[in-house]
């Protein structure tokens, strides 16, 4: 699978598709002239940049990965809304129940894009914020931190996202 996604034609095709999609969204119209101009400009840019886009070339392209992407998006939006309700409760309560601390979270993700997405997701989920990215771990700031146990924190913070990102990027 990786042989296929890392060859040049796939990379350039991905870049071309992303550029064309961006152009159409920027114009907010799907007319003939928009698409023609977009195809020409996107082809020129694709010819100039041979390497393509990294976040497409790292991704796997099998049915499980596509399914995992959608499940990941749903889970992410659910967590984002949960995070905001929790934060609203903290902000509105009169005596501010917080106990901040920075905890280490281990991750097995290898590809840079997968780790970027994991760090971004942790930043937007309940009471956690990625501070620094190490070699095999992330340092996460928590609003409410009861114990400094690394394994327990890994289970609680990262496991939900890692399950999907594992399938998407490996």
């Amino acid at each position: 699978m990786n042989d296929f996604t890392s060859n040049g034609a796939f990379r350039q095709g991905g870049l071309f598709a992303v550029l064309l999609l961006f152009w159409v969204m920027l114009n907010n119209a799907l007319t003939v002239e928009t698409v023609v101009v977009g195809v020409i400009v996107a082809a020129v840019i694709t010819a100039l940049f041979k390497d393509g886009m990294s976040f497409l070339t790292d991704a796997r392209l099998n049915p499980q990965a596509v399914l995992a992407t959608f499940l990941y998006l749903g889970y992410f939006l659910k967590e984002l809304i949960k995070a905001n309700i929790a934060l609203a409760a903290i902000v509105l309560s009169p005596n501010l129940p917080i106990k901040p601390g920075i905890v280490k979270v281990r991750t097995e993700l290898k590809s840079p894009m997968g780790r970027l997405l994991l760090a971004n997701s942790i930043t937007l989920t309940p009471g956690t914020l990625t501070v620094e990215v190490g070699e095999d771990c992330l340092y996460v700031h928590c609003v409410m931190l009861e114990s400094g146990d690394v394994n327990e924190a890994t289970q609680r913070i990262a496991a939900g996202f890692e399950k999907y990102l594992e399938v998407m990027y490996g």
Partner: peptide
């Protein structure tokens, strides 16, 4: 509005970053 309120109520920098980024994103 909650994000702005939290930005003023939270005691230290990292907590402010948390409230700021989450509330404004959603």
């Amino acid at each position: 509005f909650l994000g702005g309120l939290g930005l003023n109520r939270m005691p230290d920098v990292l907590n402010r970053i948390q409230v700021g980024t989450k509330a404004t994103t959603l």
